[in-house]
């Protein structure tokens, strides 16, 4: 991948789409490449701010660990949760074969 934000290549986009499990047509790759490149150019704006001494944050108010009492609660939800799935068998999710083509 290129280090220059604005020169994001079609190959970069194909690779990212593959990581994100998306199938793009050649037309979509052509369309997305300059769009994503221009969005990445926004990121260069961050260089104008001195962030020396600041640690990364992941909760705006610094909340870290939250505990609740270790009490077992009834959760008879299997049927309603499984009802959302496209395909199930014996309360398990059913998917096509992991290898090869579906028979």
């Amino acid at each position: 991948m290129s280090d220059n934000n604005n020169s994001l290549t079609t190959e970069d986009v194909r690779k990212v789409a593959d990581l994100a499990m998306l199938n793009l047509t050649d037309e979509q790759v052509e369309q997305y490449t300059p769009q994503l490149g221009s969005i990445l150019s926004l990121v260069a704006e961050m260089d104008s701010v001195d962030i020396e001494g600041y640690e990364p944050t992941h909760h705006p108010h610094g909340l870290v660990n939250v505990y609740r009492d270790d009490v077992i609660e009834a959760a008879d939800v299997t049927e309603s949760v499984m009802a959302s799935a496209p395909d199930t068998e014996n309360n398990q999710y059913k998917v096509p074969p992991a290898l090869g083509e579906e028979q």
Partner: peptide, 16 residues
């Protein structure tokens, strides 16, 4: 496509 919502047809798990 496993636990909820739309599932496309055909292929193996990853392709689906």
């Amino acid at each position: 496509g496993v636990r909820y919502g739309h599932r496309a047809s055909g292929g193996n798990t990853a392709e689906m």
